[in-house]
Structures are given as C-alpha cells and as structure tokens.
C-alpha cells in the first residue's frame, strides 16, 4: 500500500471487517490504465445475503461519481469495498492513491476541537510548522477560521460537515468517499453545502465517490450518476452530465437528469 490510511486490517475493537477475501489481491497496486478506482467482477455476500454479483465499475481520476439506489441496495457496502474497510467475496478492487471517507454524521471526534479534528488528517506530516500552515489553510478554505477552537457540539450540523470534509481533504488524499454526507441536514443547509463542496473541489481537485439517496443531489453535483438496482445490486443505469460546477439546480441538464433517474427507478407519476 502506498498510503497510511488505506488498508489497516484490524480496527482494534474487533468489528466485523470481512477478512474473508477469497478473491486474492483485493487491495493496493497502482492502476495502469489511468482510473482511480476499479471494481472488477466484484461479488460480496454476507452469509446467504448476496449484495453484489459480478459488479464492474471504473472511476477515472478527478471524476465525480454519484451512486444512487433504493435504500438497502448496498450503497454503503460499495463504499466499504472501495475504501478497503470491507473486502469482496470474489473479484478485485484496485485503488490508485490514498482514500479518505466522509461519514453521514458524528464522524468528528467530539473531544477534539474543529482544528484538532482537521489535524487528524495531517497526522502524517512530521513538521509542526507545516501542519499548522496546512491547518490554517484548510480552516480558511472552509471559512471556519473563527471556529478553530470550537468543539463539534458547539457547531451547527452544516459546520460539522464542513469540518469533516476539510479533514478528509487534509494532507494529500487522492480519493474522497462520501457516505450520504448531507443526509442529516435540513434542505437549505444541504443546498448550501452542495455549493460549498463544488467550490472546495475546484480548489482541491479530488476523485469523488458520493453515495446518496437524494437523486436531485446527485444530479446537482456529479459528472456521472450510477444507479443501482435492488439486491443483488447491479448497475441499472449510468448517466453522464457535462456541466460545470457549481450548477444551477434548475438548469435543464440537471432537471433532465433527475427526470431520467426517476424514470429508471420507476418513481415518476403517470401524467394525469
């Protein structure tokens, strides 16, 4: 592994980590063909529950891919496979670069300040001065300079998620995995944070996999939307959106994408 965060095997407290990889080299190795993440013929079962069967997915460098699908279809399992937290029953997962995860909520350590939490992402930097410089830069980037010494419980939900994203952007991570990062927020905050994320990615380009159940959110942000079917999940539709970010929510491309995904998922009301 070429990074410190990718494939730690044991998490100390013995949570289920699916060490049953029979598919050989599931981790590590650089990808020669230029993609940042690649799932090749990946299957994952938990006992008799088959979540994926023969899934193929390739994500290019700098691409923003949103994964949507019905709840319980395995979106989170997919992220766990991509991050290396979980391993496939068969097939291979390849990732080129360091992976960072942004959680739904409560992913910040409540006993550390906003600055302390962001510094977790800078732990690998030995020089204190350099750490401090990068910390200040990140705090400025997420516009929370004045909240460096605040603890998570003293911040609003939106501020907390901004700190989480800053922590994941810290250092030299290449790939961001976001697990419904805005789902715990109210609609207006969610809209604002979509704009925030677009801005942050312009400043710090990353390969992004964004799992969401919010179709509009996917269409608002992603270069490519992957729609998963019910279990065992397969990719039932892929959609490319060629539109600069930040996007207007009512832009025809965005609206059209929402319509098409609703169609695919059978969620559009029949015209009266």
């Amino acid at each position: 592994m070429n990074n410190a965060h990718g494939v730690a095997k044991k998490s100390g407290d013995g949570q289920a980590t699916g060490d049953s990889a029979t598919g050989g080299s599931a981790n590590g190795g650089s990808v020669s063909n230029g993609s940042a993440l690649r799932l090749a013929n990946v299957s994952r079962s938990f006992g008799t529950l088959e979540v994926f069967r023969g899934l193929d997915l390739e994500i290019g460098h700098g691409e923003f891919v949103a994964i949507v699908g019905p709840s319980g279809c395995g979106k989170t399992t997919l992220l766990n496979l991509l991050s290396g937290y979980d391993e496939p029953s068969s097939g291979t997962v390849t990732r080129a670069g360091a992976v960072r995860m942004v959680y739904q909520h409560d992913g910040l350590f409540p006993w550390l300040t906003a600055a302390g939490n962001i510094e977790l992402g800078l732990r690998h930097i030995a020089a204190a001065a350099e750490r401090k410089r990068q910390l200040d830069e990140l705090l400025t980037l997420i516009r929370l300079e004045n909240f460096a010494a605040h603890y998570p419980h003293q911040l609003s939900g939106g501020m907390r998620q901004r700190v989480e994203i800053a922590r994941a952007l810290a250092g030299d991570s290449d790939i961001l995995l976001l697990d419904e990062p805005f789902s715990a927020l109210d609609y207006l905050t969610r809209l604002r944070l979509r704009g925030e994320l677009a801005r942050l990615l312009r400043e710090r380009p990353r390969t992004v996999v964004f799992v969401t159940h919010d179709i509009e959110e996917a269409a608002h942000l992603a270069d490519r939307i992957v729609v998963l079917s019910e279990r065992p999940a397969r990719i039932c539709c892929e959609l490319r959106l060629d539109l600069e970010r930040p996007r207007d929510l009512t832009h025809p491309v965005v609206v059209d994408a929402v319509k098409r995904i609703l169609d695919v998922m059978g969620l559009r009301a029949a015209p009266a």
């Binding site: 410190a4 965060h5 998490s11 100390g12 407290d13 949570q15 350590f109 550390l112 732990r123």
Partner: peptide
C-alpha cells in the same frame, strides 16, 4: 464510527486506546 475514523487516520494499539477509546 469513532473506531472507523480512528482506523482511517491510522490509530492503532496504544494510540487508539489513549487517544480514542479513553477520551470517548
């Protein structure tokens, strides 16, 4: 989730105990 984050950021063994489990 704290243990997942701890793992993401490379906390192990004694460090995990003193900097994650104990403050938690």
């Amino acid at each position: 989730v704290y243990f997942r984050v701890a793992r993401d950021y490379g906390f192990r063994g004694r460090e995990l105990l003193m900097q994650v489990t104990l403050p938690a």
